[in-house]
């Protein structure tokens, strides 16, 4: 379970990225973070894993409170898939990239191998095992970036704009994959239709604060969505 209380986070240039957020995400829930550009979606995800500094407030995952000493423990529990997979894939081989996190967790090589094989199979990308990230399509890169995080078996999976750069087919495949995953999910996205399909709860952010928190059916409410400069999903 993720518990966030009064979280305020700042960037090194002192820009306030997240401002007094309170949020509880229960095990198995899928939450969509919606909001216009600069609303604080990515910043909130980065603050949860301690990449950007928290000025005040509490982040707790499965009973572990985020702090300087516990950042490693928190990052075992919460996996973040970055918006741009190129930022995440930096090893010469897909295998090594997926194994990177497991190796950092100190797993023996046999277990690393088994985890990588399992996650490659689950995401149907076993054929990419020996390839270089430089030679992949956008959809393949996205799948590998997700595999790299899933291999660490986090209890909380966070995805930042997962449908960016994806064509219709790759997007569909991502929807199916995410629906199969049992982890708790937080998905920051502009793709409202995607959010409605994958998530059962939606949180609208504005200026670093939570403006609305409710069932994903609110994504169909034209009046509410237009109030936050968002486009509702057309009914029917």
């Amino acid at each position: 379970m993720l518990t966030i209380q009064g979280l305020t986070a700042i960037y090194p240039d002192k820009t306030k990225a997240v401002d007094g957020i309170d949020l509880i995400v229960n095990d198995g829930e899928s939450v969509a973070l919606i909001g216009e550009n600069g609303a604080g979606k990515t910043s909130l995800l980065l603050a949860v894993v301690g990449v950007i500094e928290s000025l005040s407030g509490v982040v707790e995952i499965d009973g572990v409170r985020l702090g300087k000493k516990t950042a490693g423990e928190i990052r075992k529990k919460a996996g973040l898939v970055f918006q741009n997979p190129d930022d995440q894939l930096f090893m010469p081989l897909i295998y090594d990239d997926i194994a990177f996190g497991c190796r950092n967790l100190g797993m023996p090589e046999d277990e690393v191998k088994a985890r990588v094989a399992d996650v490659l199979d689950r995401l149907n990308i076993a054929h990419l095992r020996g390839r270089s990230p430089l030679k992949l399509s956008g959809g393949e890169k996205r799948a590998v970036a997700m595999a790299a995080v899933l291999a660490m078996n986090p209890s909380l999976l966070m995805l930042d704009e997962p449908t960016a750069f994806l064509d219709h087919r790759a997007r569909r495949s991502l929807v199916e994959t995410l629906k199969k995953l049992s982890q708790t999910k937080i998905i920051a996205t502009h793709d409202i239709a995607f959010a409605a399909e994958v998530c059962d709860r939606a949180v609208i952010l504005k200026d670093g604060k939570i403006a609305v928190d409710g069932a994903s059916s609110l994504l169909y409410d034209e009046k509410l969505m237009s109030d936050y400069r968002l486009e509702a999903i057309a009914k029917g």
């Binding site: 980065l46 990052r75 990177f100």
Partner: peptide, 12 residues
């Protein structure tokens, strides 16, 4: 950004 991604996957 690359370093952040590495840190998120346990690199210290």
């Amino acid at each position: 950004r690359v370093y952040n991604a590495m840190a998120c996957r346990g690199y210290a």
